[in-house]
Each structure stands twice: as C-alpha cells, then as structure tokens.
C-alpha cells in the first residue's frame, strides 16, 4: 500500500538512501568475543564456562499510515491543531479517535474540529534518562496536557519552565515547531502564566536534590554526545 498508492496528492519524499540504510546490518555478525562467564540456575550453584558472543545488527524502515486520524497529523504539518468530536455525545478527543468510545454512541464516527492552542497540565515527569531516540535532549519535561474542551490528555514536551515550577493545573500554550515533520513532536507546550510558587508540589529539599540531578544529567549528556547534546531544561 505504502509503495503504490492510487494517487499521491502531496508529499515530502524521503531520501531514498533510507532504503539502503534500512538494510544495514542484515543480521550478519560484525564481531565476536570468546568470554568466560558464570553458569548455573542459582547463585549458590555457579560454575565458570566459556561463551561465544557475537554482535549482530539490523535496521528497518516502516511505511506507516495514520489511518483515519491522518487529518490530525496533516494538521500538524500545517501548524493547525485538530481534535475529533462525536456528533452524538459531543466528546472531543485529543489524541483523536475516529470512532467514539462512549458505549451509548456505538462507535459513531467522529468529526474534525479545530482546537484552541491552549490547555493545562494534568500531570508531568522530569525525564533524566530515556530510550535511544531521546537521549540527546535530556533532561526534559513531559506533561500530559488537557487541551481546552477535550476529554483526554495528550503527552507533550513542556519547555521554558523550571521543573519545580510545574504543577497540575498550570496553564500552557500549545506551540508548533518551526519545521513540522508529521508526528506528535511537532507540538510542544510553554507556560501561559507565571507559575505560582504556592502551588508547587515539590518540597524545598526535593528541589535542591533535583537541581543537583539536572546538573549531573546535563554533564552526562554533554559527555556522551558532545556538541550534539541539546538539553531541554535550562537552569
């Protein structure tokens, strides 16, 4: 399907080198080690033996359709925020659902509505470690934000705020990145109000510890990635 659509209406064609890069590795060994290691099913019954350990890489390229929620992601490319609304019960979804999940609506198909670029933090975390694709931007804040009028919350990055100034209820603006790519990272949040210190959920002891943590994480990211490090929290 992804290779031979009926008609391409508009596109940003990918660098075809990705086809080659996605074949990198091919599960073929690139190295090996003959090692000594422990053998045994309990810690009090261990012996030592030899193992052959190979290094075996592979890569892949997914051609992923966003299905009936495609308009939402096309909206991101155009810097517009859409949600989906059930014509029966009026629930507005962001993340969008193409079918309403209210039982009485019997999976009614939803309609698209443009949403205001505003919301509030429902809950959040300060990320000091992560999965491979996100390490360079550590530390960062993720916030689950309820966009005005929606019955669900959407995960976003929250920028331009100290982590201890974030609390449930903090009003935020939804912003678009300069060059959208067509995924949820095309939006990010920033505070829409000056954070109220009396609403902080972290104790002063926690804040001191967190400042120290942030410093250590930044040092780690810079050490690991050098000039490619892009820490998202400025302190």
């Amino acid at each position: 399907m992804a290779y031979k659509p009926k008609k391409i209406v508009e596109s940003l064609e990918y660098n075809k080198q990705w086809d080659e890069w996605a074949r990198q590795g091919n599960w073929s060994p690139v190295g090996w080690r003959w090692i000594e290691g422990p053998k045994g099913y309990r810690l009090d019954k261990l012996s030592t033996t030899n193992y052959l350990v190979i290094q075996r890489p592979h890569a892949s390229l997914y051609h992923h359709s966003y299905g009936m929620t495609s308009k939402f992601f096309k909206g991101l490319l155009e810097k517009k925020l859409y949600g989906s609304k059930c014509p029966k019960c009026g629930s507005i979804y962001l993340p969008p659902r193409a079918h309403c999940w209210n039982a009485e609506c019997r999976l009614e198909e939803t309609e698209w509505v443009e949403l205001p670029p505003r919301g509030e933090v429902h809950t959040f975390s300060v990320m000091a470690f992560s999965a491979t694709p996100f390490l360079k931007t550590l530390p960062f804040i993720i916030a689950y934000v309820r966009v005005e009028g929606c019955c669900t919350t959407v995960p976003t990055r929250l920028l331009k705020v100290n982590p201890w100034d974030v609390y449930p209820g903090l009003k935020v603006n939804i912003n678009f990145v300069e060059h959208p790519k067509g995924d949820i990272m095309d939006i990010y949040c920033t505070p829409a109000e000056t954070p109220d210190p009396s609403k902080r959920i972290m104790s002063s002891e926690t804040i001191e510890r967190l400042k120290d943590d942030m410093r250590k994480v930044k040092e780690w990211v810079v050490r690991k990635f050098g000039s490619e490090a892009k820490p998202s929290i400025e302190i």
């Binding site: 995960p155 449930p168 949820i184």
Partner: peptide, 30 residues
C-alpha cells in the same frame, strides 16, 4: 527502553520520549 516503549502507543506516547519509566512517573506524580 525503546523496545519496551513499543508497547505504548507509538503514534502518541512513544515519540514524546516518556518511555515506560516516564509513563509510570507521570501517574505517580498525579
């Protein structure tokens, strides 16, 4: 972490970089 996070919604939760420790952390914060 990346492969475990593939057990979250890869169109919404995963690209933001929360991965499972992050998802559980936001629940605990709440």
């Amino acid at each position: 972490n990346e492969f475990i996070a593939a057990a979250s919604d890869t169109d919404f939760d995963f690209p933001v970089g929360g991965y499972y420790t992050g998802y559980y952390a936001v629940l605990e914060t709440r």
